[in-house]
Design a protein around this nucleic acid. Structure first.
Lengths: 169, 169
DNA sequence: GCCAACCTTGACGTGCACGTAAACGACAGG
DNA sequence: CCTGTCGTTTACGTGCACGTCAAGGTTGGC
């Protein structure tokens, strides 16, 4: 009989914090949950879209839930918005910059340093919003264009129905 | 000295109808105006996205203003909505009914057929609008997410400034 | 300790959407 | 008629985003 390996890799005991949703995932599970192939996950890593995950002693990749979220983010950016992986890399790097800022943000640091980091994070985010705004504008433009066309179709259909009625008599 | 050829090909005298915006365009002009390469225009023709344009006796392609519009439409469908050229081909074929609607005598039998085609063309456009709405929703979602963060950054910056003022005293 | 399931790193292949080069013909100002 | 510019076809090349083996190593239930 075939038997599944129910690998639940918990690198740390993890006593109280966080329910053991799945602890750490290996590549097959991540692939299944995100709907991309293992190849794609390795490819994204190679291209710098995913940070190199921790490894098991034997070399198996161990992903976090955050990685799953990131993959889903990548998929959204790619599939819905049509960005190239190069574009997306910039965006996830911006995300990375922000989390870096978060990580190095110290309550006890100099106020001016904290302010600078916050401003930097804000700047990055503003850039992201700008990219989105561009897409939004283009899409709105196209939509109004299409709706104009729909009106045209409707008037033509009107015409045809009139002709149809005229001929029925 | 180099001299430009100011080719203005007007196949018909075209007396009263339409201002002579540019008459008929050859491939270089279309390429320049649409922002795609000549190769791309020939490629689209080969793939059935553009109907074979009329030719000059020597074989030069002569495009119409409608062709320019179509190329721009193709670019939007591809770049903004992320459709493949195969998808787009189906769409523009359904839209081909437009040229049919203009000509043709209205025989009774053809009226219902044309109405069906028009409805199909309208459906295609409606589908495109639906895709746009999806993307708009996704983008708005992302944007509000980012703006939430921006607000967060701003309030933190506010806090810092207050502390800074308190310390100045 | 066995073995099936799972993973690893190459390396080559594929579909799409063109890019690029070569060799040649067509158009029009002078 | 000459010449510079523009266009034609044919054919091979390219970048992206993976797909698809191949050959081997790792893990864990039994």
């Amino acid at each position: 009989m075939t038997h599944k390996r129910t690998h639940t890799h918990t690198p740390e005991p993890n006593p109280t914090t966080q329910a053991p949703t799945h602890a750490y995932l290996q590549i097959g599970e991540v692939a299944e949950r995100t709907g991309v192939t293992q190849r794609t996950l390795r490819f994204y890593e190679e291209k710098g879209l995913l940070k190199p995950p921790t490894r098991l002693d034997g070399g198996f990749r161990l992903y976090s839930e955050d990685d799953v979220l990131r993959v889903e983010q990548i998929k959204r950016l790619q599939g819905l918005l049509g960005f190239t992986l190069a574009d997306i890399k910039d965006m996830v790097e911006a995300e990375e910059v922000k989390s870096q800022i978060k990580a190095t943000y110290r309550k006890d640091a100099e106020i001016s340093e904290r302010r600078d980091k916050l401003r930097k994070a804000k700047e990055v985010t503003v850039g992201q919003v700008a990219v989105i705004d561009q897409k939004l504008a283009a899409l709105h433009d196209m939509k109004s264009h299409l709706e104009e066309k729909l009106d045209q179709y409707d008037t033509w259909l009107q015409h045809l129905e009139e002709q149809s009625r005229a001929q029925a008599r």
